[in-house]
């Protein structure tokens, strides 16, 4: 399943706040780089100030609109609306001097910074520009780009943006570029959306809602990731036996622990049943931050020694 994801051109990682979306994006990018791809990890956030948790997770030193190398095969960028506006004006306007004059005009700069949806369009435009960049030999600079999307509400507004813009301004250079971008994002061969969720009722409900929105927007949901699934140490028999014990014993915290496991299992079953996409379940690990991103990326990478070991078998 993952190898198929590595062969996309763009992997968009989405999810509600607090479900581990950013850590997952970092882990996927690291794993793809390990399997031999040259990967760009891009942070797409409408708020460009402040610290970048994503940069911290992969140990990127420079946080900004310039692509910086993090480790072999892995680059990082924090997308910038201003950079996208520049790319766009330079391409759309007949003369370079006009683009430069436009960017020097304070009123126009303000308009681009705060105008309805123009910020988001700038971010998307820089992303598309980076996606299309090629080397002198014609190959893409980054065959795969992993994008850490903002939390769900914002991400859906972003995803709906191309269609809205097309409805408002079907003509002109914007219309043309937006249509091209939309074709790219809706193409399941080139684009994959990964949806992150937790084994709790509310995140699962929200994921199912996002999945139906993605279908409506015709964006290809390729995989759902159920994060932090608690380890269940019980067999069917021992679970039944534990219930009997708890009933006899009276109040005991074991009941609470069991209820948590039951809730996680029910959430997982519901997600699997109602979501029309493959589901990848990740364990709950007792580390956080870069160590967690690293541990998850290892879970995504087929073990080389293991593979060799299998080959050695008769």
């Amino acid at each position: 399943m993952l190898e198929a994801l590595w062969d996309k051109r763009a992997l968009l990682v989405s999810g509600k706040g607090g479900v581990g979306k950013t850590t997952l994006a970092a882990a996927l990018a690291v794993a793809a780089a390990r399997s031999g791809r040259t990967v760009l990890l891009a942070e797409l956030s409408p708020e460009e100030e402040g610290p970048s948790p994503l940069a911290a997770l992969v140990g990127a030193r420079g946080v900004g609109p310039r692509v910086t190398r993090v480790r072999p095969g892995l680059d990082f960028v924090r997308l910038s609306a201003a950079e996208g506006h520049r790319d766009f004006l330079e391409k759309a306007l007949p003369a370079r001097w006009l683009a430069e004059a436009a960017l020097r005009t304070r009123a126009l700069r303000r308009f681009l910074e705060a105008g309805p949806a123009l910020r988001e369009m700038g971010l998307m435009y820089q992303l598309l520009t980076l996606l299309w960049r090629t080397r002198p030999d014609g190959r893409y600079v980054h065959p795969l780009t992993v994008v850490d999307l903002p939390a769900t509400g914002h991400a859906l507004a972003l995803a709906a943006l191309p269609q809205r813009v097309l409805a408002l301004m079907p003509g002109g250079p914007i219309g043309r570029d937006v249509r091209e971008g939309l074709d790219f994002l809706q193409d399941p061969v080139r684009t994959a959306v990964a949806l992150t969720s937790l084994p709790e009722p509310l995140p699962v409900s929200e994921s199912l809602h996002v999945a139906s929105e993605l279908r409506r927007l015709e964006l290809p949901l390729s995989v759902a990731v159920l994060n932090r699934m608690p380890e269940d140490p019980f067999t069917a028999e021992s679970r039944a036996a534990l219930r009997r014990l708890l009933a006899v014993h009276g109040p005991h915290q074991g009941a609470h622990a069991l209820a948590r496991l039951d809730r996680a299992r029910a959430a997982s079953v519901r997600l699997r049943r109602e979501l029309r996409a493959p589901l990848l379940t990740l364990p709950e690990l007792d580390v956080t931050g870069p160590a967690l991103a690293e541990a998850l990326s290892e879970a995504f990478t087929p073990r080389r020694e293991g593979a060799r070991g299998q080959e050695a078998l008769p």
Binding site: P233, F234, T235, E237, S238, R239, A240, A241, L242, R244, L245, L246, V248, H249, H252, Q253, G254, H256, A257
Partner: peptide, 25 residues
């Protein structure tokens, strides 16, 4: 948080599944 799951052992009455349940707990 969950402490002394062993407290449940007094009710197991030699039931194999109950004992493994307490171990898992």
């Amino acid at each position: 948080v969950l402490t002394v799951p062993e407290a449940l052992l007094e009710h197991t009455r030699g039931d194999r599944h109950a004992e493994s349940a307490v171990k898992a707990l």
